[in-house]
Design a protein around this nucleic acid. Sequence first.
DNA 1: CCTACCGATCGGTAGG
DNA 2: CCTACCGATCGGTAGG
Lengths: 197, 197
Amino acid sequence: MAKTPRKKASKKGLILLKAATLFRQRGFVATSMRDLAEVVGIEAASLYNHIRSKNEILEAICFDIANLFNEHLDQLESTKASSIEKIEQVLRFHIRHMVENYEQVIVTDREWRHLDEPFLSNFHTQRRAYRKRLAFFIEEGIQKKEIRPIDAPTAVLILLHAISGIESWHRSKKKISARELEENMLTILIDGLRKNV
Amino acid sequence: MAKTPRKKASKKGLILLKAATLFRQRGFVATSMRDLAEVVGIEAASLYNHIRSKNEILEAICFDIANLFNEHLDQLESTKASSIEKIEQVLRFHIRHMVENYEQVIVTDREWRHLDEPFLSNFHTQRRAYRKRLAFFIEEGIQKKEIRPIDAPTAVLILLHAISGIESWHRSKKKISARELEENMLTILIDGLRKNV
DNA sequence: CCTACCGATCGGTAGG
DNA sequence: CCTACCGATCGGTAGG
């Protein structure tokens, strides 16, 4: 409750936040540590009192986001919802984070390839596993006749990428509300999956 | 019909092709002219006998793709197809090019931000115009009750981004056929739009 | 198409 | 947290 609790941690937090913004705008490789230092308000060399390397910043962003989504999926799997309800919950979670933390989500999505080993392999593995779990929801739904018979990995790929389009929504001038965005996306995507009875 | 017709033009073509592959794999900024020279089989300095700058390569890739899609849309607009048929044709065209020329399409999609002015503004304008034309198809379809009442720009954003997911299909081990991919995507996306009667 | 090379900028360190 | 600086690499040019 003090006014400056763990000053160092909050400065590191600021660096990660500003880095996410720059990495989204210019890309990880095209953002220099001098660019980052400038928006943080210190000299480039001083950044290294808070972080070990440029790549460590990317690691922090990517794995924070990966953990967030993995934990949500863990919770959801222990639930009794129907397959299509589970898919809906996953989509709503993704959409909300693309609306609220879109800088981090987009950076993770677009720049994770620049991770160094062993983080690159680790991330890649987690990503494939996450998609497989989603594909399993869809296969389950197809068996239960909730979802039309389609290729499950293709459906996953459509769903996840469709959501990344929210980046354009952020930049559009006359935005619909976040609530409307979510309902519109759900309408199109869920009804595209649902088996008409 | 000679064996080496316009040697210089074909070498430039080779450079553009190899560049698209590298730019997709590593990103535009992270690909050096020395990397490119190596896969082309010449020294870095020699590249400049065929192209003027690194950015000119990106320009060639992005505007080739932009022209391709714009011309397709021109043709389609002079057609008498229903709104939903027009959307379907656009999706099929995008899907096929993501299957066949995916290196160029993905590079355009992901790296166009690194274009220099005035190309950057030009491309950005073309991109917005293209999306507006698609949104118009959807609004038209809503009025004719072919398409359910949704926010048209949101629908466009979902459709276009969903297709970029085909990159993952390329990398997947057990792929379904291109034909199946196209039909699966159409099923989900078009039925997500269609008004149930 | 190559050798030789340039100035600029990069991520990062030493030392205080 | 700063000044001063390092080696590496970048896109690109000169000259042949």
